[in-house]
């Protein structure tokens, strides 16, 4: 093989391979566009006013909506945030500001471990811990399961963003004679606020679509479920139930619900990222 042909073939390989990587990128990004487009077409088309205002109809009847599932999801996510975020946030503050070596290592290690636990296993845990002991399925059990899932990311994002706060700020506040807790509460944490809020929002977006841990904690409900001690309907569980049903009308509603859920999650996700990028921008100036 001559040098010239070798060079030509090397350039051929170069172009082909680089072209391929571009193609792969387009395929993957295309998958997202396809999913969004498909859900938009099939979901938005099947959305109506009743979807947001009515209760589900008895099995096999057409019509009705998922008003209770929307409220149920909001309620469970609210509880999950109330459980997962404070613990995770304070734990993150501990790791970033107080942690001593071996205990902090253990906390960090187990947080990672918790983060890796498959959601279905969290479901088992919440079932044995809450449902079996309380003797009923409840919104609280569902909130508990999702709350547990929120802890690790809360911890790690809080820690990460607190660490990113320049030390000068801390020292400046302490030098003025401010007690450490006051310096943290009024200077350091506010400085990391955008990052921490972003972390919470991304966290929320992640658990908002969780189905598996809710199957045996909040179960489902055809009616409104007052309070937090009753089985409760949620959007993801409704999508699962309706998608596997043999009724065309339920399939339509599953698409509509999928669309609503996805829009909700993407909105949280995108606005979280916007908060972060804006804060980095203003911080960088």
């Amino acid at each position: 093989m001559t040098e010239a042909t070798r060079l030509r073939s090397r350039h051929m390989v170069n172009n082909v391979m680089l072209g391929l990587t571009g193609l792969f990128t387009i395929i993957i990004a295309g998958a997202l566009l396809f999913i969004l487009g498909y859900l938009f077409i099939n979901g938005a088309r099947n959305l109506d006013f009743a979807f947001f205002t009515q209760l589900p109809k008895p099995t096999g009847e057409t019509g009705g909506g998922m008003a209770n599932a929307i409220v149920g999801s909001a309620k469970i996510l609210g509880m999950a945030t109330a459980i997962g975020v404070p613990i995770g946030f304070l734990g993150g503050v501990y790791l970033a500001e107080y942690g001593n070596k071996s205990f902090a290592f253990a906390v960090r290690y187990l947080t990672d471990l918790l983060n890796g636990v498959p959601s279905i296993v969290i479901g088992i845990f919440a079932f044995t811990l809450v449902v079996l002991k309380a003797k009923h399925f409840s919104a609280f059990a569902g909130g508990m399961a999702l709350g547990l899932m929120m802890i690790p990311i809360s911890v790690r994002s809080t820690e990460e963003f607190l660490r990113a706060v320049p030390n000068g700020l801390r020292e400046g506040a302490l030098a003025l004679g401010t007690p450490k807790w006051r310096a943290l509460a009024t200077v350091v944490i506010p400085a990391a606020k955008d990052g921490i809020i972003t972390g919470i929002m991304l966290n929320l977006a992640r658990v908002a679509g969780e189905t598996a841990p809710l199957l045996f904690t909040s179960l489902n409900n055809r009616f409104w479920s007052p309070g937090i001690n009753q089985p409760t309907s949620t959007l993801p569980v409704m999508i699962y139930t309706y998608a596997l049903s043999p009724y065309d009308d339920w399939h339509r509603q599953a698409w509509a619900a999928g669309f609503v859920l996805l829009m909700l999650i993407l909105t949280i996700n995108v606005s979280a990222r916007m908060i972060l990028s804006r804060s980095r921008y203003s911080g960088g100036r």
Partner: peptide, 20 residues
Amino acid sequence: FCIELLAAVPSVIYGLLGVF
């Protein structure tokens, strides 16, 4: 950014798309 959004799509929606 687009590709990372794929990770935000809930599992049950992937199932829905998978089935239909």
